[in-house]
């Protein structure tokens, strides 16, 4: 999604009204319930959320000049810096060491990279198709990418072929290097 993304792709920037901020926070909590205990630390009550509307109907939400999450259609997707702050809150899958190189180059994740010995998928029932997942790597503690499941984790185990996760945001992409000023 952020393969090409520059300052020129930002169309408007505006402050979010406090009432809408409340809604946003509620929505975020509905999507990731485990965030509840830290949400006030990450987005303080008094904080001003900024909204950047960008090319391709992407909306970035910033707090203190840092992109915290973004939205393409309906779903709120956390940015990696946000994930790093509180990784427990998000559904996570792990890929093996051989896949890291390709993931950091922005490729989709293939099923074998998710099922090999170094990788980890959740036990059944796992995650549904279209879930936003955080991608970790073997022997690493921090997340390296955010993606969307193209099939449910059970299907990945069964079929074990083709694209498993669609890449949305990874370390080193333009959103990662993006800064507000």
């Amino acid at each position: 999604m952020f393969r090409k993304f520059t300052r020129e792709d930002i169309h408007t920037r505006s402050n979010v009204k406090s009432s809408i901020q409340r809604n946003l926070k509620a929505k975020l909590l509905a999507q990731y319930p485990k965030l509840e205990e830290v949400i006030d630390e990450i987005i303080p009550k008094k904080a001003q959320i900024e909204l950047y509307k960008c090319e391709g109907k992407i909306q970035l939400y910033l707090v203190n000049g840092e992109v915290l999450f973004f939205q393409n259609f309906d779903e709120l997707i956390p940015s990696l810096r946000f994930v790093h702050k509180f990784p427990e809150a998000f559904p996570t899958v792990q890929v093996d060491r051989g896949a890291i190189k390709f993931v950091l180059a922005g490729s989709n994740i293939m099923c074998p990279g998710l099922t090999s010995p170094g990788a980890k998928l959740p036990e059944a029932p796992g995650f549904e198709k279209d879930t936003i997942v955080v991608i970790n790597a073997e022997n690493k503690e921090t997340a390296m990418a955010v993606g969307k499941l193209l099939m449910s984790t059970e299907e990945i185990k069964e079929i074990n072929k083709g694209h498993g996760v669609e890449m949305i945001h990874h370390l080193g992409d333009p959103l990662w290097t993006f800064s507000a000023d």
Binding site: V38, H84, K85, A137, T142, M144
Partner: peptide, 18 residues
């Protein structure tokens, strides 16, 4: 649960592990 503080590399800006 506290927030985790990831160390970012000063050279490449990735988390130091990467």
């Amino acid at each position: 649960m506290p927030l985790t503080n990831v160390i970012y590399c000063g050279v490449c800006d990735f988390p130091a592990e990467y």
